[in-house]
C-alpha cells in the first residue's frame, strides 16, 4: 500500500505542540504518515532553502529535498536521539548536497581535502564578528564565490550555529580537522571579500 503523505488528519494544534521526538516515536509505532507530515511541514522549507543555497538551482534543490526526505523516512528508525532531530536532518542535507556537488565538480574546497592529521592546536586569527557582521548582500555574493565546501562549513557554524562536536559528527572528522577546515574557510571568505570589495572597503 502506498504511503499517503497528502492526507493530513492530525489537527494543527496537536501537530504544533508535538515535539519532533514524539512525532518520530508515533510514526515508528503506528506507521501513520501523518506523523511524518508534521516533521515534513516543520523542516522542509529550511531543507529546501539549504539545498537551494548550496546547489544554486531550484530544480536541483527540489530533487535533493525529495531524496533527503525519502532517506530520512527510510532511516528514521536509526535516529538514536543523541542529537536533536534537526541536527540529524541537516547533517543528511549537508552531506547529500556536498556529495551532489562532488559528483559534478572536482574541487569543492576544504571538505574534499582528506586531511585528518592536524595538530591539536589550531590558531584561528579571524574574529567571528568580522564574518558574522558582513553586509547581507555582500555576504551572499562572497558565499557564492567561495567553494561549496567552504560555504557549507560556514553555514553550519554561523547559520545553524552547530557546535564543533556536531560538525565533527556531520563530516565524520576529528575535532582538530574540523577546526582547521573552519579556519581555512574563514580565511578563504576574508580573502575573497577583500578581492571583491578592495576598492569599496
Amino acid at each position: 500500500m502506498f504511503i499517503n503523505l497528502l492526507n493530513p488528519v492530525i489537527s494543527g494544534a496537536v501537530s504544533k505542540s508535538m515535539t519532533d521526538e514524539e512525532a518520530i516515536e508515533l510514526y515508528l509505532a503506528t506507521q501513520n504518515a501523518n506523523y511524518f507530515n508534521i516533521l515534513y511541514d516543520r523542516y522542509s522549507p529550511k531543507v529546501f532553502g539549504k539545498c537551494f543555497s548550496l546547489l544554486k538551482s531550484e530544480a536541483k534543490a527540489q530533487d535533493a529535498a525529495q531524496e533527503i526526505f525519502v532517506k530520512v523516512l527510510l532511516n528514521l528508525s536509526k535516529f538514536s536521539g543523541k542529537s536533536k532531530f534537526s541536527t540529524w536532518l541537516y547533517s543528511i542535507t549537508y552531506n547529500f548536497c556536498i556529495d551532489m556537488i562532488r559528483k559534478n565538480k572536482k574541487n569543492i574546497g576544504v571538505l574534499v581535502d582528506d586531511i585528518n592529521a592536524f595538530g591539536d592546536e589550531v590558531v584561528d586569527e579571524i574574529d567571528d564578528s568580522e564574518i558574522m557582521e558582513t553586509n547581507v548582500k555582500r555576504l551572499k555574493v562572497v558565499l557564492n564565490e567561495i567553494p561549496a565546501g567552504d560555504k557549507a562549513i560556514l553555514l553550519m557554524k554561523y547559520q545553524d550555529e552547530f557546535s564543533i562536536k556536531d560538525i565533527c559528527g556531520i563530516l565524520n572528522k576529528s575535532e582538530s580537522a574540523v577546526k582547521m577546515k573552519i579556519k581555512r574557510a574563514k580565511e578563504k571568505f576574508v580573502k575573497t571579500y577583500k578581492e571583491l570589495y578592495k576598492d569599496v572597503a
Binding site: 504511503i3 529546501f48 532553502g49 534543490a61 527540489q62
Partner: peptide, 20 residues
C-alpha cells in the same frame, strides 16, 4: 524562493511507493 511543497510531497510518496 518559493518551495514547491506539494510537488516534493508527491515525489516522496511516489518514491516510497516504488520502494514498497
Amino acid at each position: 524562493v518559493s518551495m514547491p511543497s506539494d510537488a516534493i510531497k508527491k515525489g516522496i510518496t511516489s518514491d516510497i511507493g516504488i520502494l514498497k
